Simulated scan of single mutants.
Amino acid sequence: MEKVTGPESAIGRYKVYRTTNIYNSLKLDTATGKVTALQIGINDDKSRFEYLVCDKVEIYLDLQIIGRYELYPTGNNYNFILLDTLFGWAYQVQWSTENNQCGIWRIW
């Protein structure tokens, strides 16, 4: 088995963030800014699933660098700040158990 070296071996591409909802967490792709919600269940396999909150961030330069994006909680249970650590751009990410209420907006 070949050993992986370099930046990819030191930094994980995906991170999971807690929400105030005990059944839902957010998964961030730190290279693209894509956010999905992970729902856990108690007894029923059907209650465990992943759904899209926002697709990758639309940017001027499509540089997929692991660790580029970070999520930060706000005082609002359903909103996080997504920060582009490369350029300093910030986005409001809203998650919900209702898919049509999820979204992402650039903070100008």
Rank of each mutant, 00 (worst) to 15 (best):
I65M: 06
D62Y: 03
C54D: 05
Y51G: 00
C54R: 03
I81V: 15
F80H: 02
Y51E: 01
T74E: 05
Y60I: 07
Q64W: 02
D84V: 07
I59H: 07
D62Q: 07
L61D: 08
V53E: 06
I42C: 02
E50K: 05
N76R: 12
K46T: 11
K46G: 08
Q64E: 12
K56A: 08
I81H: 00
G67D: 09
C54P: 03
L52H: 07
Y60H: 08
R48I: 13
D84R: 06
S47D: 15
L82W: 01
F49V: 04
L63T: 12
Y60M: 07
K56M: 08
L83D: 05
E58V: 06
L52P: 05
Q64D: 06
L86R: 11
F80Q: 01
V57P: 00
Y72K: 15
R68G: 01
I81R: 01
L86V: 12
I66S: 12
L61I: 10
D62I: 02
P73E: 05
T74V: 07
D55H: 08
K46A: 14
N43D: 15
G41I: 04
F49A: 06
T85H: 10
N43M: 08
N79H: 01
L83A: 11
G75S: 14
K46L: 11
Y60K: 11
V53F: 02
K56H: 13
Y51K: 05
